[in-house]
Design a protein around this nucleic acid. Structure first.
Lengths: 345, 345
DNA sequence: TTGTAGGCGTTATCAC
DNA sequence: GTGATAACGCCTACAA
């Protein structure tokens, strides 16, 4: 007596609904899921009544097999616990919800090999599109990804990358270069002349652009880049690089440290403090992205505001929209000055 | 002539692989996806060769329709941009990856109605399980969820809740009560006697438990709870409640504010500062969860460490494991004292 | 407008 | 062990 009087065995199928309503499968399908609506009102009502009497929910898998594509969009991020990616994901989720899509999420751990494997696995879902948010790199390691992406596109899937991309990959681009240039320039007007930049390894586009832009702006303003440290994109990378820097060199007061992202910059701040120095008055710190916590830490983190949630939302739209202007101007960014970079006396 | 010379049309199907390998569909299926393996080595090799020559990837939807269940686990969170949920999600993702499952994520926005709709929609995916991480409440609003959950379970899906749950819902429980009691008690040993608690509305289990536990510990230690403010679970809720508090009442130095979560506590800290008061020496602040940023802000946030990533991982295991000890002891928590609650002179 | 029937890619139950 | 073949639940020409 494992199952006794349960009226609906397992889940109600379209079949059940059709029978209950006394119509054909096709009719039921049309009113419940079909796109072009041409069903007599009386039938429609009966079907709908039957459907929710039975608690019917379309089997998405079956629908997907039949249609050849699933109402899914896959999102690849380096690390979902990182606020940068979390905020991005938030925008993607909002857009997906609006469009009635489901979001599938995969973590690349910043490993190109792994990323390629994930793309391949995700392909099995036949998602409408793939959003690549994990930091894109240029190098040869990135090559493993190419064939997988092509295979995916070959079966009608759309690929959207955050940051510039070649081929038929749509992309949502943030003007890292211009934003960081503005930041660098602005900081010289506050009196800074000496900067150490902590970024990711060469080849990571976002990092490279931010480093280049900042350097341009800073030198244009009369400052000089003392050193560019290649660390990584995490809080710990920022922390360790700074700790080492402070231990090995004598860093004069008034020096500015630019962390390639807020997350990195927050690590920088912690290391500065732990070394017994002061953030702001002593060693200034700036970041990039304007994640939420940057507002709540003390001193506030000077940064460049990136509308992360909006970026995620646009990426989602890029997956869905038929029309797509490939030459869209990149999202403009604003410099946000807070206490971590006070005016130098 | 709609189809011309493209070698692989769309995506390679099992059919293609079988033909290429010169075996039957059944055989190909067995070597590529089947569970019980009984295929001659020679065949196996041929099939595998054919498969990766063609770049075959199983169509998960088709597999799901055939099997009746998909290799998916759905995760419901209130807000993925919130570090609490993001860290949780991270653990879920890790476990899912290990088990070869895909994670689908849905945002409830803390709206029970919406949550119910999502569960219903997610049901269509026929996921192996559902992880309910969005703050569970007790009240009548929660009732809408029941039937949806039951329907899901009725079709063989497993439901895992974070926090206590009734019926055949598995749950991963964190000992909020004991943890907050320990925190409250400990803070009295530091000299605090007066606390204002900022929590979510009544009925939200996590919040209620933390408030109750903290109150017990704090009064047991000789302190008194001046007020319990019902605000919410967000940073802004903490901020606004505190701003109002500070504006309307005269809050003496040495008062402690306990935010029901670190996110709330961070809002509290910002409001304290904005009111021209000092966190720590003047008004002390404590939180709960030990999210990553609590370590990086200054002063550091005193809190109770919750192994969020691990909680997520366990939740995932709870979905998968056949064996499940319903009476597992809740995860123990540790008090972490930082600068936001200095010893009172 | 409605119903019939074939097909989507896999799995699983059979005989062989 | 291997291979037909009937499901799985749904969509969609096509016919009525």
């Amino acid at each position: 007596m494992s199952e006794s009087a349960t009226p609906t065995r397992g889940a109600a199928t379209l079949h059940d609904v059709a029978r209950e309503a006394g119509v054909s499968l096709a009719t039921a399908s049309r009113v419940l899921n079909g796109s072009t609506r041409k069903v007599a009102e009386s039938y429609r009502e009966r079907v709908e009544a039957a459907a929710d009497k039975l608690g019917y929910t379309a089997n998405l898998s079956a629908q997907a097999t039949a249609r050849g594509t699933a109402a899914i969009v896959a999102l690849l991020v380096a690390d979902i616990a990182d606020p940068y990616f979390a905020q991005l994901a938030s925008g993607v989720a909002r857009g997906a919800d609006e469009a009635g899509l489901v979001v599938t999420i995969a973590i690349t751990e910043r490993d190109p090999q792994r990323e390629a494997r994930l793309v391949r696995a995700l392909r099995g879902q036949r998602p409408r599109g793939l959003i690549l948010a994990a930091s894109r790199t240029g190098g040869p390691e990135a090559a493993v990804l190419e064939p997988e992406l092509e295979a995916f596109q070959g079966m009608g899937g759309r690929v959207v990358a955050l940051g510039p991309a070649e081929g038929d990959i749509r992309s949502v681009v943030v003007d890292n270069r211009t934003g960081s240039r503005a930041l660098g320039r602005h900081l010289t007007t506050l009196g800074y002349r000496d900067v150490v930049i902590i970024g990711a390894r060469e080849g990571v586009h976002t990092s490279d652009d931010r480093i280049a832009g900042f350097s341009e702006g800073f030198t244009a303003g009369g400052g000089q880049v003392r050193e560019v440290i290649r660390a990584g994109f995490t809080r710990d990378a920022g922390y360790e690089a700074t700790a080492r820097l402070l231990a090995e060199q004598s860093v004069p007061a008034g020096t500015l440290v630019f962390g390639i992202s807020d997350v990195v910059a927050i690590g920088v701040m912690s290391a500065v403090r732990e070394a017994g120095r002061f953030v702001g008055s002593d060693i200034a710190v700036a970041g990039f992205d304007d994640i939420a916590t940057g507002r709540d830490i003390r001193p506030g983190l000077t940064t460049v505001h990136v509308p992360l949630e909006e970026v995620g939302y646009r990426a989602l739209r890029a997956v869905l929209d038929e029309e797509w202007d490939a030459s869209q101007p990149p999202l403009a960014l604003d410099v946000v000055v807070r206490g971590s970079t006070p005016v130098r006396a």
